[in-house]
Amino acid sequence: MTELRSIFTDEFVNLLTKISKEGIENASKGFAGMLGKELTVKSSTAKLVKLLDIPKMLGGPEDETVAIYLKTEGGIAGQMMLVMPCEKAFGLVDMIMGEPIGTTTVLGKMEKSALQELGNITGTYFLNYVSDNTGRSVRPTPPAVMVDMCAAILDIVIATAGIENEEVLMLDAEFVQGDLCTEIQFWVIPDPQTILAYGAK
């Protein structure tokens, strides 16, 4: 995996950060546009963290966690996952659906669907950028929204890519709607192949 390390240069991380931030901002603007309510996003910090450290940072390996997962097919095959603690997901759904914070307490079909669309718009924005810059077409699968223990969810990425020692990008985004704000962490875990394809352009 040494090839991966050399591609995760500062320059590349900055680029990944930039397009991930734009992806989230883009997605949220879209919801505001559709709701007719002002919803702004301030993306504050971005840093590289080890995949295996994620459970500790989210609370614990058994903590109830929501993940929005999608695979990519076409010129670049890989996977992406947005991960957040369950409570944060509730707050995010409230904002997307224009409800007062605290309304959502369970992720039913509609709530998961809203998260699915957030994942779709955010993830696809990222892929569009990669595609336009590599000249390769890349299409996502419909996102899957999962709710389970943090460690179990991370198994998906770890087992498939065999990359438990690798680092991923963590973004801190603050969603603001009127007087309310909620802070969410987004983990962008592009598959090594996606990164390698980008690096090979």
């Binding site: 603007k29 879209g30 546009g33 007719g36 696809t124 569009n128 595609s131 077409s137």
Partner: peptide, 26 residues
């Protein structure tokens, strides 16, 4: 949301009358 150039071209060539990228304005 899939607003890649190749996708837009394919859609239009296949006969789509318009192509709107998400997130969309009402």
């Amino acid at each position: 949301a899939l607003g890649q150039e190749s996708v837009v071209l394919e859609a239009i060539k296949s006969g789509a009358k318009d192509f709107i990228v998400k997130p969309f304005e009402r």
